[in-house]
Amino acid sequence: MKNFEECFSDIQTDMISICLEYVENRANKVYLYASCEGDIISSNFFYNINHKYVKKHKLNDAIHLGEEGYDVSTERQFEVLDIINKDVEKIKKLCEECDREMPTELKLIYDVISGELQAEYKYELVYLKDAVKTANTIANEWFEELKQKGL
């Protein structure tokens, strides 16, 4: 039987795997944002491709001449988001079953070349305490921050 950490890690791996599938494993890095505050589950993902930071619907802005384009259809984007959100629900259930605190925010960075995963978690309210921001606002701010820092 797997322990909490192994189960938690498996779910995160699934989240990154679906993002890699979406980008056909053609990215330098995968960035995944997920949040769970109250009854609201939200997620977003973006990439570093050919050393350019791109959101999920702008993947083709990063390809070089002659490279095959990506399928960035709205349907595919929603399929990935749906899977990620279901994974967040699995994490929530796992935390409840194991009497662990549920993170309100997960930021995952997967380096495709090295295979290294960095994870950052928050446990306090992030956007429900701020009437101006939404989970999407926070994800977009993170995207801009990473882009500026070149991480």
Rank of each mutant, 00 (worst) to 15 (best):
H64T: 03
Y53D: 05
A119W: 00
H51S: 15
K133H: 12
Y127W: 02
V112N: 10
Q118I: 04
K93Q: 08
R76M: 11
C19Y: 01
F78K: 09
A27N: 13
I91P: 03
L146R: 14
L128F: 07
F143G: 00
D14E: 11
I83V: 12
S9D: 14
H57V: 08
Q77C: 07
N44C: 08
I49L: 09
G38V: 15
I41C: 07
E105F: 00
Y33K: 04
K147I: 02
K107Y: 15
Y22I: 00
H64L: 15
S114Q: 06
S35G: 13
D87L: 10
L128I: 14
E75S: 09
E120V: 06
I91F: 09
I109A: 00
N136K: 13
K2Y: 01
V112E: 00
Y127D: 13
N44F: 13
F45V: 02
K2D: 10
V72R: 02
E96M: 11
D130F: 00
E144D: 14
F143A: 01
S73T: 14
Y121A: 10
K55Q: 15
F8A: 06
K2M: 05
D130C: 03
K2F: 02
K29M: 01
Y53T: 11
E6H: 07
G69T: 15
D39T: 15
I84L: 11
K93I: 08
N3K: 03
H57P: 13
K92D: 11
E105H: 01
K52P: 08
V112W: 05
E37S: 12
F46L: 03
S73K: 11
S114E: 04
V80Y: 12
N60H: 15
Y22F: 15
I40E: 14
S9T: 07
E145W: 15
Y47Q: 02
G38Y: 11
S42W: 12
E75R: 09
L108I: 03
N60P: 14
D111M: 07
V126Q: 13
E96Q: 11
L151P: 01
Y70F: 12
E6S: 10
C36D: 12
L125E: 13
Y123N: 15
I91E: 08
G69F: 13
M1S: 09
E97P: 13
I40S: 15
I63H: 06
T134S: 11
S42D: 11
D82H: 12
T134N: 08
E116G: 06
E97Y: 03
Y31D: 00
D87R: 10
N48F: 10
L128E: 06
N28G: 08
C36K: 05
S114V: 04
N60Y: 02
L108R: 01
A27Y: 11
F4E: 04
E75N: 07
N48M: 13
S35D: 09
Y53N: 08
K149T: 05
S114W: 00
F4H: 00
V112H: 07
E144S: 07
Y53P: 09
S43C: 14
V80M: 06
